Simulated scan of single mutants.
Amino acid sequence: MATLIVSYPAAKGARFDRDYYLATHLPLARAAWSGFGLQSAEVLFPAAGPTPLVAMAILRFRAQADIDAALSSPGTAKVLGDVANFTDIAPTIFRADDE
């Protein structure tokens, strides 16, 4: 199992459309990457109050090589291009060391 984490840092005045993210963006990512070993996608939203993040997505793939293949696939451009539709926050993308 390999994990790709996408986090959205909190910033005063930042825009993040949670409904769009869940209804449109997450299904777009699933569709783009399911053929490249994406096994699950989970989104966490912090509880109310001060927090360093607005949201975090945990994307689980079969292996690190699958993450490489997904990120270099043609569908990734569409996924990344959709970010501006729900937020003005630049996401932080990193891998967990779980292999």
Rank of each mutant, 00 (worst) to 15 (best):
T87S: 05
D97W: 00
S7R: 13
A32M: 00
L4H: 10
A31L: 09
K12P: 08
T87H: 06
L44G: 14
L71D: 02
Y8N: 05
A90F: 07
E99W: 01
I5P: 00
S72C: 13
Y21N: 03
V43E: 00
S7E: 04
Y20T: 14
G13P: 02
F36W: 06
L38I: 08
T51I: 08
D97A: 13
A65T: 15
D68E: 09
P74I: 10
A84R: 12
A77N: 06
T87K: 00
Y8I: 13
W33P: 09
S7C: 09
D66K: 01
V83Y: 01
P46I: 12
Q64T: 15
T3M: 04
G75V: 06
A77S: 10
P50R: 14
A55K: 00
A55M: 05
Y21W: 03
F61I: 06
A2R: 01
P27K: 01
H25R: 01
V6E: 04
P52N: 03
A90Y: 07
S73A: 05
V6F: 06
V54C: 03
D17Y: 03
S72R: 11
S34H: 09
P50N: 14
E99K: 10
T51L: 05
L71K: 04
V83I: 13
I5F: 05
R95S: 09
P50I: 12
V43P: 06
V6Y: 05
L28A: 12
I67R: 02
L26S: 13
I93K: 00
I93V: 15
A11W: 01
R15Q: 11
A31S: 14
G81V: 01
G35R: 00
L4P: 01
T51K: 09
R62H: 08
R95D: 03
A29I: 10
V43M: 05
Y20P: 01
D17S: 02
R30P: 06
I5D: 00
A70L: 02
G37C: 04
I58C: 10
S34N: 13
P27Y: 10
S73N: 04
A14V: 14
T76H: 11
L59F: 12
F61C: 05
S34C: 12
A84G: 06
A63Y: 09
F45M: 07
P91F: 08
R18F: 04
G37V: 09
R15M: 08
L80D: 11
A47C: 12
L80N: 14
G49E: 00
Y20L: 05
Q64H: 15
P91W: 05
A69L: 06
L59K: 03
R62A: 15
A48E: 12
A47E: 11
A55T: 14
P50A: 15
L38R: 00
A96K: 08
P74W: 05
D82V: 04
Y21H: 11
L4A: 10
D98M: 05
D19K: 12
A23E: 14
T92I: 14
